[in-house]
Design a protein around this nucleic acid. Sequence first.
DNA 1: TTTGTATATAAGTATATACTTATATACTTA
DNA 2: TAAGTATATAAGTATATACTTATATACAAA
Lengths: 117, 117
Amino acid sequence: MSMLRINAEYSSDLSQELEELFKALANVNRIVLLYSLSSGEIENISVNEISQIMKLSQPAASQHLKILKSAKILDAKKQGNHIYYNFNQKSLIKHKKKIDFLFTCVLAKCQELENRE
Amino acid sequence: MSMLRINAEYSSDLSQELEELFKALANVNRIVLLYSLSSGEIENISVNEISQIMKLSQPAASQHLKILKSAKILDAKKQGNHIYYNFNQKSLIKHKKKIDFLFTCVLAKCQELENRE
DNA sequence: TTTGTATATAAGTATATACTTATATACTTA
DNA sequence: TAAGTATATAAGTATATACTTATATACAAA
């Protein structure tokens, strides 16, 4: 069985997972939000605070948060009247591994082609 | 100057670059193509061959290739009547670093929050 | 209870994306 | 030069995305 055949088998599921992940990340507002959350001092951050950081309306922010939560980039916990968003660490580690795998495959091929010359 | 302030300065440009990169990657056909190119035996691959691999029409494949080339994921070289696509190694290494930086920031924050408990 | 606050969701709209078919461009070869 | 091949681009269309405004839901506090 050739590499291409093997690849065709695993790549379908993994590629679809990566598509979902990349789609969730493919928005500058959401990327800036992730950086802001990374550097922010506030541990538990509410939707209203996030909408202020993002300079977006509450519904717009809420919709972005839904996308990030669906993609398991963020996690939400309800506390009384507020919903606090945080990183989904466990899932983010898995996401990172998927991306690393893609780039490892691609860059390994680059290296192989370079060595052939 | 707080981290948030510093962040606000660098994140704008970098975030926009990441958005473009993630958008280019946010399509399962393109992701599968990257895996196929990674594992394929053919070094120089033409648009027609790619459209067959992708199971898409020639114009559709051409449009995907344009997106991947614009995002500096692939590179094209013309040879006679054919245009051969290959990975843009130099740029891919830079792309990987940008993604790594994002995840490093995010996962460092995760770790920090975990240690606080 | 009633009122206020926090958040989500629904519906509408403008723009982006991913295809299609048709055609243009560039090169090759008879 | 004419005809064929490889690729890109243009135009059209269906669907997705990212907002908007209006409204629903869930909880808190008076």
